[in-house]
Amino acid sequence: MSKMHVKMTVNGKEVEALAEPRMLLIHFLREELNITGPHIGCETTHCGACTVDLDGKSVKACTVFVAQANGANVTTVEGLVNDDGSLSVLQEMFREHHGLQCGFCTPGMITRAHRLLQENPNPSEEEVRFGMSGNLCRCTGYQNIVKAILAAAAELNAAREAAQ
């Protein structure tokens, strides 16, 4: 199959490549760019393991063609660490509150939670549960994931207030 020229920004870096237009964004990231944080769990947009941030929206990269992401700005979990390489507040809170076990859903969870807290910086527990309902976890029962996101929201809000 003939290939198309694809150009996008991934985790702040410009990337260019030739890819079959039918290639899924998740395979482009994982196999062409070696960005293996986002995972494949269902291939039907249900589980959210492949969640990435695309132009400021959470999308499931298993059902986006690379052609659709041409020119886009994509952030994966790898792009969420602090500039000095330390864990972000969200990543740290997942660790602090035992919000992960096998780690397979975690990149998608954190990437989605990152966007959720942009959309709603001060969510209630119910809003977190609803806002995260496109991301499935088989290990944790979500209780600690929810706790981690609420703790991160509190810490980020406190830091924001302190800065003002």
């Binding site: 944080g37 979990v77 780690g103 954190i110």
Partner: peptide, 14 residues
């Protein structure tokens, strides 16, 4: 968790 939270796990498909 330091590895897993930043997408640095190494699963078979990786």
């Amino acid at each position: 968790d330091v590895r897993f939270t930043q997408g640095k796990g190494n699963y078979v498909d990786d």
